[in-house]
Design a protein around this nucleic acid. Sequence first.
DNA 1: AAAATGCTTCAACTTTTCTTGAAGTGTTGA
DNA 2: TCAACACTTCAAGAAAAGTTGAAGCATTTT
Lengths: 110, 110
Amino acid sequence: MDKYTALQVFEALSSGVRLDVFRLLVQAGPEGRVAGDISSALDIPPTNLSFHLKGLAQAGLVTAEQEGRFQRYRANIALMVDTIGFLTENCCGEGVSCELTGVAEGVCKP
Amino acid sequence: MDKYTALQVFEALSSGVRLDVFRLLVQAGPEGRVAGDISSALDIPPTNLSFHLKGLAQAGLVTAEQEGRFQRYRANIALMVDTIGFLTENCCGEGVSCELTGVAEGVCKP
DNA sequence: AAAATGCTTCAACTTTTCTTGAAGTGTTGA
DNA sequence: TCAACACTTCAAGAAAAGTTGAAGCATTTT
């Protein structure tokens, strides 16, 4: 993963609205949710929701699929997990031990 | 972890400058780095760096310790790892399998 | 004590992001 | 075909974040 991709991911999750939307989609699982469904579940006006969904989709954190006149969104959890790998790169290299950094086991040595 | 804490973490990492700083500190390990060191390593004016370090510290992603007239910063990787746990909460619950979501093994069932 | 160093805070400006109503696109059902 | 529906795009104003030089505070050196 490159820095730009990671930055897009963090930017996407740096808004309360988008964080709520992503979490809702994570909990929805592979079925995902259609836009209007998300709008009413979180009480966000459709115009505003569309703006934020665009940001999440651009970052790759959600995928969009047309379903008749509905638009179904799904979370991409794998990208989120990969992003952590990017952040913890080299955190245990060069004589730096996991014990000292307090990092959970398995994170630094995948 | 609550939503506010997670949001602070993502906001903190949603800037290119702060992402660079955090990654530098992750790679620096437990020794950390003093502010002036970071400033010259990443070519960021001290004033601006101070602004961004404040954001990272407020989110809890870095800690600051005075060392004479220097200020030493260290990364808090554990918080980053915890934040992922928050995001993937319930992602495999209620009949939703990890296989379908494509999530790395062990993430959903810690 | 005075000057130098390391860093932060402040104030002002610039830039970006957010929010909302109005208008637009495509789809479905009467 | 026409109205209703689901959602997105557009435009404009409001709010938040980023950047910089000048000034401030604390520590160290001379």
